[in-house]
Amino acid sequence: MKFGKVLFAAAAATAMTTAAQAGTLDDIKARGELQCGVATPLPGFAAPNAENVWEGLDVDVCRAVAAAVFGDPMKVKITPTTSKERFTVLQSGEIDMLARNTTWTLSRDVNLGFEFVGVNYYDGQGFLVNKSLGVSSATELDGASVCVQTGTTTELNLADYFRAQGMKYETVPVATAEEGAKVYDEGRCDVYTTDASGLYSLRSTLSAPDEQIVLPEIISKEPLGPLVRHGDQQWGDIARWTLNAMIIAEELGITSANIDEMASSTNPSVLRLIGAEGNMGEQLGLDAKWAYNVVKNVGNYGESFKRNLTDTLNIERGINAQWKDGGLLYAPPMR
């Protein structure tokens, strides 16, 4: 009899763990907090302030998902991850989602068993030059000396681009962004190249930031977005639509400041978003006010972008503007 009991207990335990794997949302609700992986400090995207609170564009995605699930943006445990360990911690279940300026590529999406739920920042490799160089386009950079971090895809993109344009250049290799800033500041290279977000961040550390411009050409595609594990579609949907809700809120002109007045709106799209009409929350397995909580507590995409990137690092919206303003942000309709 005893043996039978043990067997039963083991079977029950196995059943429970299987259930636990499927229901990420239930796990999170039972735990009382979302576990979200972000970058080890990266200015503007994820960094703790002096009061130990994490801030940044990526952190806001985590907080938005926590707000959608719990109605409280602080019910999230932020786990900083290095670029090498980020996929392991997601695979092993240490975190529920990863928002760590990770480029969406086929092999990561398919081979590593992840699901990218959208793009929260369109990045790409660009060029930073001094205004005194009198250059307004990357096509005028023939013969320039270029500072580039060695051993990165940046270096390869640079070589491809200059070869395609039939231009010559001279590499000034640097090991880290810190070193690069110093070398560029001393005028040992004409051009600095890395991802555009990195260029803006670097510019803020230079001695004369206003004298530098980022050229309009972007020579590589780096769509950065949050991702979850394969295998739990419901959880992936929640993360995807939380990000979409932030983007749609901006498109509809709903901000954290005016969302309470929106109840009197006559626009059905607005009413669906704030949960006054339709059953969007129910379909996702969330509260009817899930999107209201996201915008109310974290703000819409534009607010998050301005707070984390524009006000601090002077990053312009550029291709991250709404599709109506000529950018790439285009969220499917919420209906």
Binding site: T40, P41, P43, G44, T81, T82, S204, T312
Partner: peptide
């Protein structure tokens, strides 16, 4: 490995805009 010892905190401090 993502633990914030003295060096890690130094990186946090300079990541502050």
């Amino acid at each position: 490995i993502g633990l914030f010892d003295l060096i890690g905190i130094g990186l946090v401090a300079v990541a502050d805009v």
